[in-house]
């Protein structure tokens, strides 16, 4: 089967043959593509980016992301948790906004509040 590696913007077109753990991957420019194909066939993962509400009138939304990846099928559930958060204290890039969401943290990808100035 064919799949596009989404690890980097190269977007390598992977050709995967075999089943289960016994697969061969061709077309990847780097080993990450091979790893990607393996995960994609067993337990696909995705990183999730979104925003959360804030209490700061000039910055009504703070961008966030999952620090690592979460199961592909859990994106909507993770969104529900993200939707329930509102940031009231100043935060900066990397601060944890929501801990332990499907095995990773939701962290800020921007600054908000006083530090934003």
């Amino acid at each position: 089967m064919e799949m596009i590696c989404i690890v980097c913007p190269n977007g390598c077109r992977l050709e995967v043959t075999g089943t289960g753990d016994d697969i061969t991957v061709t077309g990847a420019l780097c080993p990450k593509g091979v790893d990607f194909a393996h995960t994609e066939l067993t337990a696909p993962l995705r990183s999730l980016t979104s925003t959360v509400a804030t209490a700061f009138p000039l910055v009504p939304r703070l961008p966030v992301k999952t620090r690592g990846e979460i199961p592909k099928g859990k994106m909507h559930e993770a969104m529900a948790q993200i939707r329930a958060v509102r940031v009231t204290k100043p935060v900066k890039v990397g601060d944890v906004i929501l801990a332990d969401v499907f095995g990773t943290d939701i962290i800020a990808t921007g600054n908000a509040g006083e530090v934003a100035a």
């Binding site: 939304r61 958060v85 509102r86 009231t88």
Partner: peptide, 10 residues
């Protein structure tokens, strides 16, 4: 809105 009016983050 995007419905993000949830509980305050500590």
């Amino acid at each position: 809105t995007d419905g993000k009016e949830g509980a305050d983050h500590a």
